Simulated assay, not measured.
Amino acid sequence: MHTDQPSQPSSEGGQQPSVVAAHDVLPLDEQAALHQRRRLLQSRVVPWLHEEVASRMAERLQAIKRVPAHVLNSSPALGGGHAQLLAAYPDAQHWWWEASPALRAQTELPLAPGWWARWRGASTAHWRNPASPAAELLWSNMELHWCALQGQRMKQWQEAVAVGGFVMFSTIGPDSFKELRQLWQERGWGAVAPDWVDMHDLGDAMVRAGFEDPVMDQEAIRLTWSRPEGLLRDLRALGGNTAPARSAGLRTPRWRDMVLQALEQLRGGDGRLALTLEVVYGHAFKGQPRLTVAAETAVSLEHMRSMVRRTTPR
């Protein structure tokens, strides 16, 4: 598999809330998503694409001047990035957090010594607990597109970040695998993937979750393969189809042969099969808590002075 990267910049865990903004919900089969993530964890290897995106996202840390004392990596087993965060912030305390109890339990199972040492970074991080300090940086790599309630996940991030701290995340954008979408649509095979959220809507969701000054951009990556079997193998290593509108029923060898034949239509002038992947990046800061405004609001002078003292430059 080969990649080309033309950049295009631009300005399950927890209880469900009773009211969720429509824009903060990703149409996703949550049970299928949990099943696929648990399957990926069994390999004890961070998915190949996640490792690549983690390296690209780490380069963006240079734009943030604040040096965090506490770094929180959300969903680290599948998102990766621990080595990059250690290199960027060697003096910080590093913590991990996994929203899904099932995934955390599976992550904590005994693992092969070599893999365990590589992933844990020789015990350089600890699992977050209620007594853990708030993070000046929360890192989430290739996690958000697995979440149906994306607004709820962002709110969880916001609650874990210190005032003046920031979140940096990456996820899959709606133009990803558009070539496959067309093939599946032409043949009436149902949806090949969920309708992932546009970066502008993700930025709006960050504001609703309580973050400030969100900056969003995206990158289109061209993935190519010499054979359709390799394409299917690599896509399976990223997960599976979690779209609610996917075609139901078990797949047969005949179905696989049909898919392999259809994929041949993806060959370009260079003779290689090609797919587009859109990666969305975002970061935002956590500002001072806002006062609830009523018809009449009383604020003590001491409280106002305290808020001013807590204000830190970015």
Rank of each mutant, 00 (worst) to 15 (best):
T3A: 13
Q15L: 13
H23S: 14
H23Y: 00
V25W: 10
E30Y: 00
A32L: 07
H35K: 06
V46E: 04
P47T: 06
V53Y: 05
R56K: 11
M57S: 10
A63T: 13
K65W: 03
K65D: 11
R66Q: 14
P68W: 05
H70R: 06
H70N: 13
A83N: 09
A83K: 13
L85C: 05
D91S: 13
W97S: 10
S100K: 00
P101D: 08
A102L: 11
Q106C: 06
P110C: 10
P110N: 09
P113Y: 04
P113R: 10
W116D: 14
R118Y: 10
G121R: 05
H126M: 08
N129D: 13
L137Q: 04
S140V: 02
E143L: 15
L144R: 04
Q152F: 00
Q152Y: 00
R153Q: 14
M154C: 10
K155L: 10
Q158L: 09
Q158S: 07
M168D: 05
M168P: 03
P174A: 00
R181S: 11
W184A: 06
Q185H: 09
R187V: 00
W189C: 00
W189N: 01
V197I: 15
M199I: 08
H200S: 14
L202N: 01
V207A: 05
V215D: 14
I221C: 12
W225Q: 06
S226A: 14
S226P: 02
R227K: 12
D234Q: 14
L235H: 02
A243H: 09
A243K: 00
P244C: 04
P244Y: 04
G249D: 01
L263V: 06
R267S: 00
G268P: 02
E278Q: 15
E278F: 03
A284M: 06
K286H: 03
P289Q: 02
L291H: 11
V293K: 15
V299M: 11
E302A: 14
H303G: 02
M304H: 12
M307N: 08
V308P: 00
V308A: 15
R310V: 02
T311S: 14
